[in-house]
Design a binder for these strands. Structure first.
Length: 425
RNA sequence: CGGGGUAUAGUGUAACGGCAACAUGCACGAUUCGGGUUCGUGAGAUUCUGGGUUCAAAUCCCAGUACCCCGACCA
């Protein structure tokens, strides 16, 4: 994509009403636009990042048997009444609205009810199980206090997968599988080294659950980490009984602020009971389906990556998350250099490299560098009179290539560049 | 939902109760071309909304709204 055609622009000043680093860099870089507290639009660059995250999650979910679908944003009151979660006394941050005929509906708050209701129509035999449907969708929650940029929103984009299993054994096997899948996701997202599987409260569903907590100062949770084993416990469930069961000692624990980037729950029969979600086993007996719920907030994950991976100049996107693989900068106003840059851009496009081409005219080198640092694309390729001259053989294009995360770059030829940026399969 | 704070060009900020200013961004012209280059010209504001005090309110007072922070909540 040509930067001259990108309608968003970077801004030098941080927005006055944002304190968190993720909001500051994402707004300054033109990744997101704030509509109101806790509600952000994703601009072209931001959407590309979101799509990268979505695809990573999709791959991992599909790899363990996930089947993608799409549920509605408008949710049926009657279904929620079955599970007793429609009442505002039970769920106090619903967004609800009215139909013309006076009937009430809810804006998608969560998906257990919708999935239980849909799957009831299709599950009747042990042969139909297990099944792991999931979707990506916008979730609406009337938060009394949204905060920290895109870390906690009133509207947010998430992935939710629900597991439907025949029994506890089958359920537990999948539960362990998805733990690994989540670890893969956070590793690819570049925050694996700071993300810990954390023992946590089960909320209103079950006694315990597991959270994936990423250590960061903007975190809303406090976790206690045993650095030897890598096992963490959320403050809310920290007690001797749990420590004993996990085999960790209180004196080895280190306290950290952390943000919950993923959460996995066993639901048991909490929803299969009210929805009468049963199957018939080999002996003709009726059994309740065992369910589980597995969520990841994509916006929050994006915000966490920015919080954790940035420096004073801007974002440092990890390879698989970055909006583009490489940022091609044309410096100066020399026509020959500009033509060479065009040629290189076209060649990179043909080779399937995702590239942002800073072809803007009349912008100083310093400003282009500053923008490149702010946008945080992993590779920066500079074409200038100098880079062309510095190539030893001087027959091919000399390109100065530098990693965003590193100080020094090197001059490479176009072939070397193509090789380094070869799209990963 | 409790507490604290803030609200002025697109953005960031200034302005004793007395002509709303500066920087940046934007437009135009020149200059420069490897870390937000320099100079000139110009456009850009119902000072959040409503009320009050006053000869006079961006400024003081009241109410509302929005936003930020702390806490509570967080399926």
């Amino acid at each position: 994509m040509r930067q001259s055609k990108l309608f968003t622009k970077t801004q030098k000043e941080s927005p006055a009403d944002e304190v968190s680093k993720n909001a500051e860099f994402l707004i300054r870089g033109g990744f997101i636009h704030k509509e109101m507290a806790g509600v952000y639009s994703y601009l072209p660059l931001g959407l590309r990042v979101l799509n990268k995250i979505e695809n990573i999650i999709r791959e991992e979910m599909n790899a363990i048997g996930g089947i993608e679908m799409k549920t509605t944003a408008l949710q049926n009151k009657e279904i929620w009444e079955k599970s007793n979660r429609w009442d505002d006394k039970v769920v106090d941050n619903w967004f609800k609205t009215k139909l013309k005929n006076g009937g009430e509906i809810g804006l998608s708050f969560s998906n257990e009810e919708a999935y239980s209701n849909i799957l009831k129509q299709y599950i009747s035999s042990y042969k139909d199980l297990p099944v792991y449907p999931y979707d990506f969708k916008d979730i609406f929650r009337n938060e009394t206090r949204s905060k920290s940029g895109i870390m906690r929103g009133r509207e947010f984009y998430w992935k939710a997968l629900y597991s439907f299993s025949k029994d506890e054994t089958e359920h537990n096997a999948f539960y362990e599988k998805i733990k690994i899948a989540y670890q893969n996701i956070f590793k690819k997202a570049g925050i694996g080294h700071l993300t810990y599987l954390t023992f946590a409260s089960g909320g209103s569903f079950s006694k315990f659950s597991h959270e994936f907590q990423t250590i960061t100062s903007v975190g809303e949770d406090t976790i206690y980490l045993d650095e030897n084993s890598g096992v963490a416990v959320n403050k809310e469930v920290l007690n001797d009984e749990i420590l004993n069961s996990l085999g960790i000692k209180r004196e080895n624990l280190v306290e950290h602020k952390a943000i919950e980037v993923g959460n996995i729950f066993s639901l048991g029969t909490r929803f299969s009971e009210p929805f009468d979600l049963k199957y018939r086993n080999e002996n003709g007996e009726e059994k309740l389906v065992i369910m589980g719920s597995y969520g990841i907030g994509l916006g929050r994950l994006m915000g966490t990556i920015v919080e954790v991976l940035s420096d004073d100049k801007g974002i440092i996107w990890p390879e698989f998350i970055a909006p583009f693989q490489a940022h091609l900068l044309l410096l100066g106003d020399n026509e020959i250099v500009a033509k060479e840059a065009e040629k290189i851009y076209e060649k990179l496009l043909k080779n399937g490299v995702e590239i942002l081409f800073d072809d803007r005219l009349g912008i100083s080198a310093g400003e282009k560098f500053a923008d490149a640092d702010l946008l945080g694309i992993p590779w920066r390729a500079v074409i200038s009179a100098r880079s062309l001259k510095d190539l030893p053989e001087s027959k091919e294009s000399g390109i100065e290539l530098k990693k965003r995360a590193e100080e020094k770059g090197k001059i490479v030829s176009l072939d070397e560049l193509l090789d380094l940026l070869k799209p990963r399969i």
